[in-house]
């Protein structure tokens, strides 16, 4: 069984062509701009959207843990009190307004792949399925089985990873992976730790390893103004990546603050990035540095 956060059909930014992407739960990084904070833990998560609540009171009377609180300021929820009774479903099911959702659903590999193959008529030769996260390699056994089933059906497979894991995990899935999408967030280990909570030596090592194995890769660089989008960082990235022969393309995009609602729904506070300044210019400046430092070897691509 695997724990899946979401399945997104007609996904156009997760590899070539038309794809369906499965987002798996669990992540060993804590990138401060993360767009999927609900995926961090390897367990189902309750999300609460107070603005949708119509105050019917059903959840209040159902919850024996006192997780739902009504006060003058409205309906609040204390996720730390929630014990996920009835598989997190009791109050969620009862809520007419969809003010609560549960993130995380269990799938067998067969069932997940059946869902992912539904749109195969749109994939043609280059489209297919992508596994993303969270950190997909946190569920490497499940992932490997899903990939194997996909390949048995002739589906093109992508694995989207930060690759900040032991190499064995990567090697376990490489056999059935057509294309790796690898996030590169910083070269300086201290900066990486500051931004993502862990240092990056395994990411660097794994990108190198995939290169040596001849595995095609698309590298994705999220730009954070004043943090990793500096001349020295970008130059270091370019120098590193130009030496990896199987990097087919490098996608560059600015970090945006789209997930604030989700942070709130999880009872968390999201940080804001790239608020000041022109993001288009941030991309263009970064591309110029990457281009120059790689002598035009890298196939650079703007995602905005």
């Amino acid at each position: 069984m695997g724990l899946v956060m979401n399945i997104q059909r007609f996904s156009l930014h997760d590899g070539p062509g038309v794809r369906t992407t499965a987002f798996l739960m669990g992540c060993n990084l804590r990138c401060r701009w993360c767009h999927n904070p609900e995926s961090w833990l390897m367990k189902r998560r309750m999300m609460f959207y107070p603005n949708k609540c119509i105050g019917c009171g059903r959840c209040l009377s159902l919850c024996a843990r006192g997780a739902h609180v009504f006060s003058e300021s409205g309906h609040g929820m204390d996720p730390s009190r929630c014990i996920g009774c009835g598989g997190l479903d009791a109050c969620v099911q009862a809520c007419p307004a969809e003010a609560m959702t549960v993130c995380g659903k269990e799938y067998t590999p067969e069932e997940l792949v059946r869902q992912l193959a539904k749109d195969r008529i749109f994939y043609e030769e280059d489209g297919g399925v992508t596994f993303s996260g969270g950190e997909v390699l946190g569920q490497d056994t499940f992932l490997r089985e899903c990939l194997r089933l996909c390949k048995a059906q002739g589906l093109h497979t992508c694995v989207d990873t930060a690759a900040c894991v032991d190499s064995e995990k990567l090697l376990r899935v490489a056999e059935y992976t057509d294309l790796f999408l690898v996030d590169l967030k910083a070269m300086d280990p201290a900066l990486h730790e500051k931004l993502c909570g862990v240092e990056n030596s395994r990411t660097i090592e794994n990108i190198r390893l995939l290169g040596e194995m001849g595995k095609p890769m698309w590298i994705r660089i999220p730009l954070v103004r004043g943090e990793n989008a500096t001349e020295s960082e970008l130059r270091a990235m370019a120098q590193f990546l130009r030496g990896v022969p199987t990097v087919e393309r490098v996608d560059v995009f600015p970090v945006l603050n789209h997930a604030q609602d989700k942070y709130r729904a999880l009872g968390m506070q999201g940080e804001l990035f790239n608020e000041e300044g022109d993001n288009q210019e941030l991309i263009e400046t970064s591309i110029r540095i990457l281009e120059k430092e790689s002598d035009g070897v890298l196939n650079l691509n703007r995602l905005m």
Partner: peptide, 10 residues
């Protein structure tokens, strides 16, 4: 019947 309406919409 707002609660019922939303249930039906769901």
């Amino acid at each position: 019947y707002e609660a019922l309406r939303l249930e039906l919409k769901k």
